[in-house]
Nucleic acid binder design. Structure first.
Lengths: 327, 327
DNA sequence: CTGTTAGCGCCTTCAG
DNA sequence: CTGAAGGCGCTAACAG
């Protein structure tokens, strides 16, 4: 910056003012400075600037698994919101490991991020509170805060699961199996509640033998589905709580070649060309990111002082049907 | 930091030393400082530290489309390499827009990133050279530098396309259509070359009427495929240059219900359960990111002075076959 | 082993 | 409208 100042025959202060767009600079001076900036290819050092003005112009984002299209879209939504406000995004991946998540959050705090968005890996979020305590705003995505107060953006897990299950019941299914994440996972629990509520609403009761709450990936889901479907009293339809489990179920159906209807959370490519009766709970993953981003930015601009109450936003779901639905 | 120093009854300098792990600090002092750090919940200000020591401990990553699983995996690979070396990743999405990419790169440069990895959106990369000129190391991913020298990591586009096409020829196909990106895209051009080379090798010549080099997304690919397949002299197989085009072709096949063999670049979920004869060129997208990350870190640690020659690394491909292959 | 001095590059404050 | 002084929080380099 000194170089630019010398080159333009002004003081460093004037250069600083021009760069910030201060109107109290004579047009001629401004042009001269801009010329020098251009000639020298100068770019202001953000690190130094941030040291002086505080903050960092960055927000942190921690997701559990960037390879899952769901989270990469979420990240894209966050990017979008951040970009609109001139913020940069520091992205990291916790790989579902709570201690790694903890380390990443500390790192972000040390990097002076202006705020962070976290998809929490575990059930307990006490290690996320310190971020808030040190005054760094935090927004949780996909899963609500456990044991702390914080803003969060969720999906209508309950409503979506209930709606999809109801559609299966309307189709005449009376034995609907459940393939879901362990109950410890918030989404798994909520979606199970929805599945159950749809039954109650129709004055039915799910058969516990047709409920599997262990599988977490394609392979385990496939095994669980095979197991369910080989039962002499097998379900005529299955509800799966996420895209990987649905894919496991699809593999099982291919193997057995039985006419079972499938419902599941999360839309996926080519769902329509499989030729299977498929009921999908779809929602806009980008939107979760956008909302979380905006919520965070709100809180950042509110300032550390303002103690707004923790807010919660829920992204709606939509039921889509692929293939023909036999009853 | 001063607070910690006071609390531990030492100077700020000693605190600094403890935090950096300097062994020339008495164990007793160290414990006292650590105690104070803990008591006050202190964390060193990275911004200030970086201003002093130079660099930023961050690398920038610009991809064209994070929603494409290919790029999110690439990002994951970069994360991995960065994490191993204690670097943070500043991620942004250019949405295939060259001017946006340019802005993002400037931003990254201003943020003092230690280096950056870019998946270039356009054909000309002159705007990326300045980054290098200002001494910021840069590595290109997926596409080679155009009009400048730079490190890059590529996929074996040519070899993969050639291998897949050869397999179709071995199966007895003599009329193989081509569905590809515009030739302006490096990958599109290379994959076309591979397709062509496989024909030459077998002393065949592709029929130009069966070559479509315009489509860029699922919808346009579907239309192009329909057009090709409705020809009285229609091809008996199609080679598609990426996952979106392959999906478009799959839709076309579903519509027409003709027994055409498909080959394409990029593996995708459920490819095996479609029940179609499918020849896929697969490769490890994470690996591209990892290599790019390591290459960048190499160059960063080599220092700005060392003028290593530009290096180039190519990730291998593998041909996978799904479904039965009629001839 | 520990403390002092000085300055990284910028911007806020206060004088011209 | 422009400049000079001072300091953001940290750490190299040099004392002690």
């Amino acid at each position: 910056m000194r170089d630019v100042a010398t080159h333009a025959k002004v003081s460093a202060m004037t250069v600083s003012r021009v760069l910030k767009g201060d109107p109290k600079v004579a047009e001629a001076t401004r042009q001269r400075v801009l010329g020098a900036v251009d000639a020298l290819g100068y770019r202001r050092n953000e690190t130094a600037r941030r040291l002086r003005v505080g903050g960092s112009g960055m927000i942190g984002l921690v997701v559990t698994n960037l390879a899952n299209p769901f989270y990469s879209r979420l990240a894209l939504g966050v990017q979008e919101a951040a970009y609109e406000h001139g913020l940069r995004v520091l992205l990291s991946n916790s790989a579902e490991q709570v201690d790694r998540e903890k380390g990443l959050v500390e790192d972000l705090a040390a990097s002076q991020v202006d705020g962070m968005i976290v998809v929490p890996a575990g059930g307990s979020h006490r290690h996320l509170a310190p971020a808030a305590l040190r005054g760094i705003p935090i927004v949780l995505a996909s899963r609500p805060p456990g044991g702390m107060e914080a803003d969060c953006v969720l999906v209508d897990d309950f409503g979506g699961a209930q709606a999809a299950t109801s559609r299966l019941i309307e189709d005449g299914h009376r034995r609907i199996g459940f393939l879901g994440n362990p109950p410890a996972l918030y989404t798994g629990a909520e979606r199970f509640r929805g599945y159950w509520a749809a039954h109650e609403e129709a004055r039915l009761e799910p058969d516990e033998r047709h409920v599997r709450r262990g599988p977490t990936d394609v392979a385990t889901a496939e095994r669980a589905a095979l197991d369910l479907l080989r039962d002499p009293d097998a379900p005529t339809a299955l509800f799966c709580t996420n895209n990987r489990l649905t894919q496991g179920a699809i593999r099982a159906l291919r193997t057995l070649d039985v006419p079972v209807s499938l419902a599941g959370f999360d839309d996926f490519d080519l769902a329509d060309v499989l030729g299977l009766p498929l009921t999908i709970v779809s929602y806009d993953a980008d939107e979760i990111g956008r909302r979380a981003g905006r919520m965070l930015i709100d809180r950042i601009s509110a300032g550390a002082g303002a103690d707004l109450p923790a807010r919660r936003s829920t992204v709606p779901t939509e039921v889509i049907r692929y293939g023909t639905q036999p009853s």
